[in-house]
């Protein structure tokens, strides 16, 4: 009992210099939402147009539902091949592949001056480029600035149900990229519904070679470090492969200037050479 009281009253919980967790977390849905292109509001449409659009939505969602039902009737589970790359996101020159990504940088939230865009090149690959800027906005409270980020959109099943990426059978992340010599950060997000786990994320760094040659980056899932709110968590947990909501690439390496990252595909692979579960110690630091 005495031990428990001391554990609760320890100053660790309330020091923002060490832990970025606070007692009250505003929910992410209360953040300002920034659109590249605003969705059409149904108020501007006439009654017939509304009917038409809802009919189209119903049709496409029902198609999806039927496909999902069909998958359930297969006798064999959906197979994967060992040591072969399964692409999850691929830039193939279509607008649909571009719509899978959300681009944001600190200028959108008035936290800085960086700009970033994601475009398709003439060969159909995606180019994530822009200018990183570490100048601080003069609001008196911002202490660090300068990040550019792309994140994949949430995966949905039919009729808008939340879905997760299930990467249980895989143990490696594969990217085919062409960078500019900078260091990027890969984020695998496992956003939960509760306010405690909505910032849960696994990070790892990706060094790009630069130059005109394509580069295949292979990173095992075991190497990813568990972070909360961008700071390394003191207690480490291996990645929950079955519950992945988003994937993202961030640039925040404190070097102001232009950047350019060309992405062909992002995939996963079941590599038989990797047997490691988790590369870091998982003991409980707070236990006394």
């Amino acid at each position: 009992m005495e031990k428990m009281i001391f554990r609760i009253l320890r100053p660790h919980c309330r020091n923002s210099l060490v832990i970025k967790r606070t007692f009250f977390e505003p929910h992410r849905s209360s953040y300002p939402v920034i659109y590249d292109k605003r969705p059409e509001s149904p108020k501007n449409l006439t009654f017939l147009q509304q009917l038409r659009s809802s009919y189209d939505l119903l049709k496409s969602e029902t198609k999806l539902l039927l496909e999902e039902l069909k998958e359930g009737f297969y006798l064999l589970p959906k197979n994967f091949v060992v040591d072969e790359i399964d692409t999850v996101w691929k830039f193939d020159g279509t607008q649909k592949s571009l719509d899978q990504w959300i681009v944001n940088c600190d200028k959108d939230y008035h936290h800085g001056y960086s700009t970033a865009t994601l475009e398709l090149s003439s060969f159909g690959t995606g180019i994530f480029h822009g200018i990183l800027d570490t100048r601080l906005p003069k609001d008196g409270k911002t202490t660090h600035a300068g990040y550019c980020n792309i994140t994949s959109v949430q995966k949905f099943k039919s009729f808008g149900r939340r879905d997760y990426y299930n990467w249980v059978n895989y143990n490696e992340l594969v990217l085919r990229i062409r960078g500019d010599g900078r260091c990027y950060m890969l984020n695998i997000l496992q956003k939960g519904i509760m306010d405690i786990d909505q910032y849960d994320c696994h990070h790892y760094v990706m060094y790009t070679r630069g130059g005109p040659y394509w580069q295949v980056v292979r990173i095992p899932f075991s190497k990813f470090v568990f972070n909360t709110k961008g700071a390394i968590n003191e207690n480490q947990y291996p990645m929950c492969d079955a519950h992945i909501t988003n994937f993202g690439i961030t640039l925040a390496d404190k070097k102001p200037g232009p950047f350019r990252l060309e992405i062909d595909y992002i995939g996963i692979c079941a590599n038989t050479n990797i047997s490691e579960e988790f590369a870091y110690e998982t003991y409980d630091v707070d236990r006394t």
Partner: peptide
């Protein structure tokens, strides 16, 4: 074309 080396931004040319 540009490449980053440490904190510096350099230009290079290719014969293509």
């Amino acid at each position: 074309f540009s490449i980053w080396v440490a904190d510096y931004y350099l230009n290079y040319f290719v014969l293509k």
